[in-house]
Write a protein that binds this DNA or RNA. Sequence first.
DNA 1: GATGAATGAGAATTCATTCAT
DNA 2: CATGAATGAATTCTCATTCAT
Lengths: 195, 195, 195, 195
Amino acid sequence: MTAPEPDPLPDDDVDWSNKRSDARRNHERVVAAAVEVFAEHGIDATIPQVAERAGVGKATVYRSFPTKDALVQAVAQYQRAWFHRRGLAALEQLNAGGDPLTILRDMLADTVERLANDRALAEALPATTPAQEPGSLQPIITAGQRQGVIREDVTAQHVKVLLGGVAGSLFRQQERDPEQWRIYGDLIFNALKKV
Amino acid sequence: MTAPEPDPLPDDDVDWSNKRSDARRNHERVVAAAVEVFAEHGIDATIPQVAERAGVGKATVYRSFPTKDALVQAVAQYQRAWFHRRGLAALEQLNAGGDPLTILRDMLADTVERLANDRALAEALPATTPAQEPGSLQPIITAGQRQGVIREDVTAQHVKVLLGGVAGSLFRQQERDPEQWRIYGDLIFNALKKV
Amino acid sequence: MTAPEPDPLPDDDVDWSNKRSDARRNHERVVAAAVEVFAEHGIDATIPQVAERAGVGKATVYRSFPTKDALVQAVAQYQRAWFHRRGLAALEQLNAGGDPLTILRDMLADTVERLANDRALAEALPATTPAQEPGSLQPIITAGQRQGVIREDVTAQHVKVLLGGVAGSLFRQQERDPEQWRIYGDLIFNALKKV
Amino acid sequence: MTAPEPDPLPDDDVDWSNKRSDARRNHERVVAAAVEVFAEHGIDATIPQVAERAGVGKATVYRSFPTKDALVQAVAQYQRAWFHRRGLAALEQLNAGGDPLTILRDMLADTVERLANDRALAEALPATTPAQEPGSLQPIITAGQRQGVIREDVTAQHVKVLLGGVAGSLFRQQERDPEQWRIYGDLIFNALKKV
DNA sequence: GATGAATGAGAATTCATTCAT
DNA sequence: CATGAATGAATTCTCATTCAT
């Protein structure tokens, strides 16, 4: 039900075959550090923070990513990719004849659990555009709407905004209680259901 | 149904009885300017921006508020106060025999409308602690729960987080369509209802 | 024959009447430091260099000039203004019936002498556009052309490029001998004369 | 009338007899690339730019030249060498009984044409010292002086400074019109003539 | 020998905060 | 009291140069 771990890191479309292994290790360290630091501090984290976490100099971060924004986008893409994969898993369940509401509830629960540990995902989620993610949440919502169990004015985008927005707020007030996070997931699930 | 205007400014627990009147006027100007500027730009607005809007020097802002954070807190308190007053108005309707769900729906609609025009409220809303705001939304929710129309695990805090979180996301993606804001209000309303 | 000393510093269109005297002094220090530092190192001089020379912090420089380019432009304008004033003085001599060739020779000599001590003027000179400087050199050249003693294909712009270019080169090779500088002025004068 | 192409590359006083041929080839590639890149961007071009143009790694550039300045000097030497060869060609014409003024005019025209397409030459030209270039322009100037058609206080160095300086200015203001470049060459020619 | 990865020093710029007037 | 001038710390980004492979 959960996504496979560890998540693959973004590859940046670089052909690493003829690069030195330590360089690749450092690149991965940078990305991993960025994922961690952004997870903790959001996209306001600074390049020096990332560099220190990775144990490299600032300029090494710039070797992998030419601007801070590029790094932010890479991490955001990585986060969206997780969400996308989770959506594909849900889609398989749906195609296997699963119940849309159940699948949706589980997916929301998983996502909230991850959001609780990853501020960057919270910030990346609403920025997703439907075209970029054919899998995602939309098919499940559509299926539920066909069955008349999900509100007809709801789209995946609404869910992402609700999830991302709530997570952002909870991070800001440093809510760490998993039970509270779970409740919010359940409330959002409830918001989508047809009365 | 809407709150009275202009909203009273926060008092900051200062004894003004022996202050010069122009000092008090400056203080109020600063707060009013801060409310406006933060409403437009969120808490990332700068002190110089606030000072300019207030028509005073930067140091005058610091006379009223020793740090930028103090000013942010004051504005946040002011925003929460608006929400609190709106809650008291709803409470009166409740005591006059109104329907909790209807009252709740109207209050959410009003709040979303205000959120759409006030970034600072979105940022301030979730930071409220229950003890600070006995009025607020809680009595309406409680009444609805007694009538069995509102989920029992829901508190005013949950609603604030949902509202503030969604508004934050919508601001970040610069969503200006009032219809979209309205839908989110409706979804949150739906989230609270008992199935 | 030479320009009045000390040259007036650029005023940046600021009304200083209600500013504190120390602020004005600091502003002037910044400008004076910038003029000096740019005179020595050209426009590649850095803001920290200017700040240190002025005995102020970097940010104080930014108070007077919002970007480095603004500072560069101010200094360049100041330099062009000197050249302009010198041109006006020459124009008066011309109107008083002076000999164009003699006036031109003197003006070139003065300018070269100043260029020898001011790298920034060398860099600013060619950037002048005729429209900006109605006085300048053009009237003298035109008068000389009317008398048939100056080449007809010559404009003030050509002279500025010759002067600025030569001075740039001499700075780069650190030529300090005034006699050499004088010779270049004389060569340029010779270049302009009709055969 | 023009110099033979391709120009020979500088030798840097290195004994290549016991070097591997590919190392020598790399060295030459670096110099050729540096000549091109500096011609386009002046000495502000970066080492990575040169390395990329040469198709080698940055460190390979540093193997041939310990600092960027060393590379700059090598390119400058190469540019001066072109000028020197052009001077030798002129010298032959002189020895064959040519007219000094005509030879000088042609040489200046050629040089200006090359300057217009080579920023590095403009920057390198004035840095020449007479001792380094016995040939160059000096013999023609001397011949012209003997005939009484060229000013007696003029040396080849003066001409180089005039040429390099003007070219530097024209590059900085991005003057691309060949006619303008030609005029400057003619003015410099005029500057040298005896009245 | 050759490579490209890594780095440190430094540049421009912004802003919360302090202080002299 | 009120002001705006001054500043230092922090941030993004660049490049000449060194070093491990």
